[in-house]
Simulated scan of single mutants.
Amino acid sequence: MHNFFFDFDSTLADTRNVAVIATQRAFAARGLTQPSRATVVSYMGVPIEVSFAKMADRALTAVELETLYTTFREQYQQAEQLGISLFTGMADTLSELKARGERLYVVSSKHSVPLQRNLEQVGLGTTFAAISGSDTVANYKPAPDGILNLLDRFDLMAAESVMIGDAKYDMQMGHNAGVATAAALWGAADPESVKAEEPTYLLQAPMELLTI
């Protein structure tokens, strides 16, 4: 593999607590029942434009949803101060891949503005050749848009590419894009659902990316 497409949340960095806190606070602020931690975690990897309507205890209008998204992003930025950290071995793994001349990208369900901010927060602001956030695609994960756009933009070969992620949606997106898939089991909230997608590689630690 020479082209590495990384999910961000729970793949590159541990953001689970931040996401749960921000989601619960946003729902409470808008007068909605707070979803449980387990519910929020189960939707990680899905854009908020999809998951929030499903987690709400009542039907929301388009205006109410937009307000909820805005509140969440405000809460997320505050909750970030509680700490976002790279998984053990990730920094060294990325450095080694870059030293080898491999091409690194991020394909996330997160909006590209907070995504870039989070990358800078964990010291990866200039590590990746490009990022793809939810605002840069017509169709969200598990649609292949994020990967296909980067393959086309950088003239990359699908046969030399791999999608690395912690959720089944990442594996489905990789399959739909015709690239290899690597399950980041170090961050997976539901490892069995990820394995059920039959990823090309099952990885227990970031350093194992150096062997594929």
Rank of each mutant, 00 (worst) to 15 (best):
T71E: 15
R37L: 05
A180M: 03
D145Q: 08
E120R: 00
M207R: 09
L97R: 09
Q78S: 10
A205T: 14
A189L: 07
G187N: 06
Y69V: 09
V20D: 01
S51F: 00
V20F: 02
S42C: 15
A138S: 11
K141L: 11
A143I: 06
G45S: 12
S108K: 04
E49Q: 15
A53P: 09
G123M: 09
V41S: 13
M173K: 07
G187V: 04
Y69D: 10
S134W: 00
E80S: 04
R73P: 11
P47G: 15
E64R: 03
R153F: 08
Q75T: 07
R37N: 05
Q121K: 15
Q78N: 10
Q77V: 07
I147A: 04
A53M: 10
K54F: 05
L148P: 12
M157A: 12
D7F: 02
L210M: 01
V107D: 00
A183W: 00
Y105S: 06
P144C: 13
L115Q: 08
P114A: 14
G187R: 09
E66V: 05
M157H: 10
L115P: 12
V63T: 14
T93Y: 09
V63G: 03
Y43I: 00
V194T: 08
N17K: 10
F5M: 03
L68M: 08
P47M: 10
A91G: 12
V162I: 11
G187S: 09
Q81S: 14
K98S: 15
V18N: 08
S109W: 00
E208M: 14
A180I: 01
L185E: 12
L148A: 10
D155Q: 13
D145W: 03
A59W: 01
D9I: 03
G83I: 04
S95R: 13
L82I: 01
P35R: 02
S36E: 08
S108W: 00
R37T: 13
Y69N: 08
A29E: 13
A183T: 05
S108N: 04
V107P: 01
M163Q: 00
T211Q: 09
A167Q: 14
R16F: 07
D170N: 15
E74M: 05
A79I: 03
N118K: 04
L202R: 15
L124E: 14
P206Q: 02
I147M: 01
K195V: 14
T181G: 11
D145L: 04
L104Y: 06
A13E: 02
